[in-house]
Computed example of a mutant assay.
Amino acid sequence: MRDPYDILGVAKTADEAEIKRAFRRQAKQLHPDANTSDPKAQDKFAELNSAYELLSDKDKRGQFDRGEIDAEGKPRMHDFAGFGAGGRGGRSRGFSGFDGDTIFESFTFGPEGQTGYTRRGGGGGRAGGPNFDDIGDIFGFGRQQRAAGGGFTPKRGDDVEMTVTVDLEEAAQGASKRVTLPNGKTVELKIAAGTAEGHKMRLKGQGEQSFEGGSPGDAFVTIAYAPHPRFRRDGEDLRTEVMVPLEDAVLGAKVRVPTLSGAVELNVPAWTSGGRTFRLRGKGMPKTGGGAGDLLVTTNVALPETPDAELEALLRKRRDKGAA
């Protein structure tokens, strides 16, 4: 991977705020959803995320700046050519500057995981040498976790949190959503019918990759509801308004009302005033324990679109009669 400073376009002296601003600015430009015609969009976005993950972590950034890890967060092998310059004649060397025994062959392990080290040939055992943790630091393994019985377990990748917004219809009836994860990978997310807002889904192994050879972290996706043009949420109930022609409000009629699962007919009785609310049971949002809330429908009385002379004369006569 390229130098993370170059990827984010910041200087090596940039502070945390500058790095965050640079990442957010480029994330908007490079997000795969905004570059559907670019076949390399996901790779570019993943590279940007990796660079930010490294530079936003104070410890990792320090290790990179000191040359202990590379741009991908992998340990760098150090040059040991300067060790043991006065070596013995006729002995082969594993690393440049080391005797025939390599550095890995120089250590013995006991029940606690390390016992100092021994040299092969001519030296015998010597106590007080460097322990395995020290050697781990030399090779960049200092962040690995000690496993039971000795050895090391690589640290797993970080988990990631994200929010996916769905329409009310998708939440109620179920749907499939293509989601781009923070690592740039696109997955198909199955939204089950009746999924409640705030429901959290775990995508195992879809989090950040481990920089130490461990398993990747997980992605946790929280479901959020998008605002709807026709319905307003009231807890698990929904509210909507419907226009009722004047003659239907006076004489009574059946009026079609939209719901999340399709339109239904509402029986509006005669002499229904504007602002009256009707309840359609089970036509609201899914409930966590099963079932659904209600749809509350408020009527608005609509006058004719064009002036009606007969209606005006009738209402004028009614008004004059009431004033008499």
Rank of each mutant, 00 (worst) to 15 (best):
A14F: 02
A22Y: 00
R24Y: 10
D33Q: 09
N35L: 14
K40Y: 13
K44N: 12
N49D: 12
A51K: 00
L54D: 03
S56P: 03
Q63C: 02
A71S: 15
G73C: 03
G84Y: 07
R91C: 03
T102I: 06
T102V: 03
T108L: 12
G113S: 01
Q114I: 05
Q114L: 01
T115E: 15
G116R: 01
G122A: 12
G123N: 10
A127D: 09
G129K: 09
P130Q: 11
D133K: 12
G140E: 02
F141L: 15
G142W: 01
Q144F: 08
Q144L: 11
G150P: 08
F152Q: 08
K155D: 04
K155R: 14
E161T: 06
M162I: 06
L168G: 07
V179G: 07
L181Y: 04
N183C: 03
G184N: 07
T186R: 15
A192I: 00
G194C: 00
G205V: 04
Q209H: 05
S210E: 03
D218I: 02
T222L: 03
P229F: 06
R232Y: 01
E241L: 04
P258S: 05
T259K: 05
V264E: 09
W271D: 15
L280N: 05
K283W: 05
M285K: 08
P286T: 03
T288P: 13
T298Q: 06
N300W: 00
L311K: 09
E312Q: 13
A313C: 02
R316D: 14
K317Y: 11
A324G: 15
